[in-house]
Design a protein around this nucleic acid. Structure first.
Lengths: 189, 189
DNA sequence: CGAGCGCTTGATTGAGTTCAAAAATCGTGG
DNA sequence: CCACGATTTTTGAACTCAATCAAGCGCTCG
């Protein structure tokens, strides 16, 4: 898929409407797209590259909520649902090409029936299923188990992303992840 | 809302179809509705009482994934999405009255357009937003912070549910929760 | 080529677990 | 309605996994 609009190419009306509000943008690695407390929470579709969303806690520590490589949609759904200021930071961790859908339009158009029928429901349900698994993991699994699970689920992301970000996604420190990998490397003796 | 079908009462066709497959049931506290590896994952709407879903890890420890009091829908979405055996146990923690929608029907009917338009999308998005918050909490907050967050989010559930289950939801041991509450009770000195 | 960032490694600390046992509460039958 | 056994909650001590703090190595990119 090269554009989010591919999903609705058989609906000329909606397609035209959407095209009007959708912005395609090329951003360099490190570009901050949205930060906490922003009022205008947006929806981002990644055509190329990789984005991430994350929080920063009171100790200035980052916690990565999700990675979004090609073909993924990323946004702060909590703020969309509650029509509230953003909780999440979103930035590019690679040079990326993205489609941006402004809030408001997201409400009215993105979740328009046709859009939803084509991409909404199944994406939303997949998202829930991923989150379900993640919550269970965070509650019941050790750091090692979570790392192995991540390797299985996202083998392609592992190589693209610095270790400290994977640690951040797993909910552990970079040091802890380094030690785990150290163990895995030499299980001999 | 007294029935899930209230959502589609203006669509006679769908309503009739749904009524045919939907089963209303009264279950006693403690009744197990679905266990891990069950093939026929179902969707439950709670009319009265309270259900919960949970996993049991390799150390026989329960981890509560969610509580579902009156008006809530509970199911193992991961298994629904992937058409896979159940991951979650679901049981009644109070005497309850529920509506059960069999799998398959859930795929075809519950997520039929009309149903979705009325209840699906917004419920799914709310669910995601709750999970988003939960993941962030599990990654960045201490047990105390998570407990306070739970008190705010679900003040009505707290009194209905034994402490050990709240501990299980928070991802800590009953002992730890007891100690936290001990601290909160006497911040005097 | 140097400065800074990312990764590793080690020593110390701490939040929460585990284990155990007592105190409080619940629920069920007489 | 009370009593008694079972379950839940509390409390305490010892332990553990991962966090924190600190120091050193190796890149890379500016």
């Amino acid at each position: 898929m090269t554009s989010l609009l591919d999903n609705i190419k058989d609906n000329a009306d909606l397609l035209e409407q959407m095209s009007k509000v959708m912005v395609t943008k090329t951003v360099k690695k490190g570009t901050l797209l949205q930060k906490k407390y922003d009022e205008n929470s947006k929806v981002y579709f990644v055509k190329k590259g990789c984005l991430r969303s994350y929080t920063i806690d009171d100790k200035e520590k980052e916690h990565i909520f999700m990675f979004a490589p090609e073909g993924w949609i990323i946004s702060d759904i909590e703020s969309q649902v509650n029509n509230a200021p953003t909780e999440l930071y979103i930035d590019a961790i690679e040079d990326s090409e993205i489609e941006i859908m402004p809030r408001g339009n997201a409400d009215e158009l993105f979740f328009a029936k046709e859009m939803v029928d084509n991409i909404g429901i199944s994406r939303l349900m997949k998202r829930i299923s991923v989150l379900q698994r993640r919550v269970i993991m965070l509650m019941s699994a050790t750091a090692l188990q979570r790392y192995n699970d991540f390797l299985e689920m996202y083998p392609n992301i592992v190589q693209r992303v610095p270790q400290k970000m994977i640690a951040s996604y797993l909910g552990i420190t970079p040091e802890a992840l380094s030690k785990i990998r150290g163990q895995l490397a030499k299980p001999k003796k």
